[in-house]
Design a protein around this nucleic acid. Structure first.
Length: 280
DNA sequence: GCCCAGGGAATCG
DNA sequence: CGATTCCATGGG
């Protein structure tokens, strides 16, 4: 059954989108896949992506994109928020498995954002052995120090800009041992040793291997980068929570029905595990 | 002070 | 190979 039919209206300089359930702005922007969104007054989320600032708010089954023209919505945000994918179809399919069905109750409104690859790579390098508030702080300082000022904040600095910096230059970030990892990634991306564009389509294991050429990128950071920065939804990042959850819930093996969208299902399992603390 | 935070590199055996 | 230890920094 295909009744997923999101509608966009362009009124007064705003874009309003309706009929996109299941969709939760909060779950999507605050689930640890993106680090540059903050909830401000009146339930409005403010963030920057692809060199654009956005204010956006959810009211039930309606999303309001403030000061957003049709061309900005169609050109940037529609894709960024994965508006055109019907998540209910995925949830229906994986719900053949009762445990997965239960898991979707905890974060079924999550969408995988289609983020900028370099920003995602850099962000998940910073994420290692770190917690989300501090990850956000380091990324904010990176943007304030080396990004460009735009209306509403600062852009994420490009790889070529970061490649020219030294670990000492990055001292104000207080990113600790990760500083040299950030610079190594920037150099390998900007000088073409790693061609990020290729990673959208090449074999997933080859994509992992490419990213893992970077010092500071192991399997988990590579998988997060591929999932959140390249929309490689067959990628299944395994952190400590997921490993524990997979053992308890599935004897370590993901059910077959989930394989085509493993990355999306990973999000459901992750939040199920964390929110229930796996007291099963 | 101690522990941990959605890991990874270096260094063991 | 698998297991252990260190890595900066900040908050609880």
């Amino acid at each position: 059954m295909k009744n997923y039919n999101p509608k966009a209206y362009f009124i007064d300089n705003n874009t309003i989108v309706e009929d996109i359930a299941p969709f939760s702005l909060e779950q999507t922007l605050d689930c640890g896949q993106a680090f540059r969104w903050e909830l401000s007054e009146n339930g409005i989320w403010r963030g920057i992506a692809f060199n654009r600032a956005l204010c956006v708010k959810q009211e039930n089954n309606r999303i309001i994109f403030y000061n957003t023209s049709q061309s900005d919505f169609d050109g940037i945000w529609r894709k960024y928020f994965d508006i055109d994918r019907d998540y209910s179809e995925i949830i229906n399919k994986i719900s053949k498995n009762n445990v997965l069905k239960e898991a979707t109750n905890f974060a079924g409104g999550i969408r995988i954002l289609r983020q900028d690859p370099w920003e995602t790579l850099c962000s998940f390098i910073i994420s290692q052995n770190n917690n989300i508030p501090r990850i956000k702080g380091i990324i904010n300082r990176l943007c304030e120090n080396f990004g460009e000022k735009i209306d509403g904040g600062y852009t994420f600095p490009s790889a070529s800009v970061v490649a020219k910096l030294t670990a000492e230059d990055l001292a104000p970030l207080r990113s600790g041992f990760r500083a040299r990892y950030i610079i190594d990634a920037a150099k390998k991306v900007s000088d073409g040793e790693i061609d990020l564009d290729k990673l959208y389509t090449c074999d997933i294991d080859e994509a992992r291997a490419e990213l893992m050429k970077i010092c500071g990128v192991g399997l988990k950071v590579a998988d997060c980068t591929l999932l959140f920065g390249f929309y490689r939804i067959e990628s299944f990042p395994k952190d400590v929570w997921i490993k524990r959850a997979m053992e308890k819930l599935f004897d370590g093996e993901l059910p077959k029905v989930a394989e085509p969208y493993a990355g999306i299902v990973q999000q459901y399992i992750f939040h199920y595990a964390r929110l229930t603390k796996l007291e099963l």
